[in-house]
Design a protein around this nucleic acid. Structure first.
Lengths: 231, 231
DNA sequence: ACCTTGCCTTGCGCCAGCCGTACATTTTCC
DNA sequence: GGAAAATGTACGGCTGGCGCAAGGCAAGGT
């Protein structure tokens, strides 16, 4: 099935060096590539710079609360996150999971269970599904580096704008309904607030279209949704 | 246009009736729809019959081992599975997770944690979008992409036009009565306005037929309704 | 404490698409 | 073959949906 032995890259975010060591040894023994950062801030930067295939995140970080790290990450990224914590309290678990974590493991943890949970979490996001670099007309998006360019020059997109654009890229050529977008970006309770969409769509067009008034790529299908077309 | 908030359906597979009761109460309190089966075999049948949005599976089943249930399920389905078990042993956890489970929770479990994990697991399910392509003569419709092409070139349809065409595609080859169409597209109060239909039918033919005056696919059965034919 | 940034919210002008009428054409049935 | 019924087509007014600008608000950074 997997002909070239592809090695997923994992990012470990933890302030304790012993834990990082332990995680590195454990994960590398299974063939994963491992990167590390000590703080939440650096972790977020690292993901933005080059997206890993998964994240192991310690809740107890010196700078940001781990839950906050997940929340910010989830504004624009879907990278699987497995949370580690010493805290047994279910409030912490629930907060982290609802912030967007995919799994929660309590320290001390078994190395073999960790590996199994990492496999389970990675399995759900097909790694090679989407090429890192996608071009649509003179717009290009590098999903791993989290960068969008138009005519070669980098364009700064806000978190929501990026998330919206990424969704359209994922379904490029096809119509994405208002509902789908709203569900994905604002959650199932915002399915009717189509005006959010209109505003952010305007911003996107102003940043990505040569002539925002007559869009060539970011098309709208009245009464249905939006779509990204190549020609 | 505002449909009720979407309630995911969960399937509980557990042989102990007390646990099923508990799970049902817990899950229904959050608005999920709940179905139940007592054995692994019945569970698999139930999923095959009508796929739920997620599964809560007890490992200790009388007929099949829970791990085996997951393994068989994963041969054809990607439904998220959350495993419950009394067994603490890490071998069981690893076996279940590697068989294809998405999460593993040990009994006794906290209701709130279960709900949080269910949310986390459901959140991951991507908006499935396999191209459901149907061809009729030189017209093709990709229902998941909301795109219609004639002779290879894309044709822009308005919302009503698309809805009408999709309905005809759904019953292709067979006659769809005026009433049926009107009820479906304009609601039960417009069953007599066959006139709407005529107008939109004209538009459709102008966009999809080579010679709109002598339609080859969008046929009309006078006094009855319309039908989409292949030849 | 101030400034910056990004998201939400509102309001307004505009236009595509829907409705409704009027008329032409085809089909049905005697 | 002809009248009546049913269907096809054209056109214009109207409305709901959409683009867009501007202001408020909250959070982060300096």
């Amino acid at each position: 099935m997997t002909s070239p032995p592809f090695k997923p890259t994992l990012l470990v975010i933890d302030d304790e060096i012993q834990i990082r060591r332990l995680l590195r040894v454990t994960l590398e023994s299974e063939g994963y590539k491992v990167r590390e950062t000590e703080t939440g801030q650096l972790g977020l930067q690292e993901v933005a710079h080059q997206a890993p295939d998964g994240i192991i995140l310690d809740l107890g970080l010196p700078d940001l609360d781990g839950t906050e790290v997940i929340r910010r990450l989830r504004e624009w990224s879907k990278v699987p996150v497995l949370v580690l914590s010493v805290r047994e309290g279910e409030d912490d678990k629930i907060a982290a999971l609802d912030a967007g974590a995919d799994d929660y493991l309590t320290k001390p943890f078994s190395g073999r269970e960790l590996l199994a949970r990492v496999r389970a979490v990675l399995r759900r996001t097909p790694v090679s599904a989407e090429p890192a670099m996608v071009r649509v007309g003179d717009i290009e998006i590098d999903q791993s580096a989290h960068v969008v360019r138009r005519a070669g020059v980098e364009v700064h997109l806000t978190a929501k704008e990026y998330a919206l654009f990424q969704l359209l890229v994922q379904y490029r050529g096809r119509v994405v309904t208002h509902r789908q977008i709203l569900r994905e970006l604002w959650g199932p309770n915002a399915e009717d607030n189509t005006h959010y969409l209109r505003v952010h769509m305007t911003h996107l067009r102003q940043k990505l279209e040569a002539d925002p008034h007559t869009p060539r790529h970011l098309k709208t299908d009245a009464g249905i949704g939006y779509r990204l077309v190549d020609v």
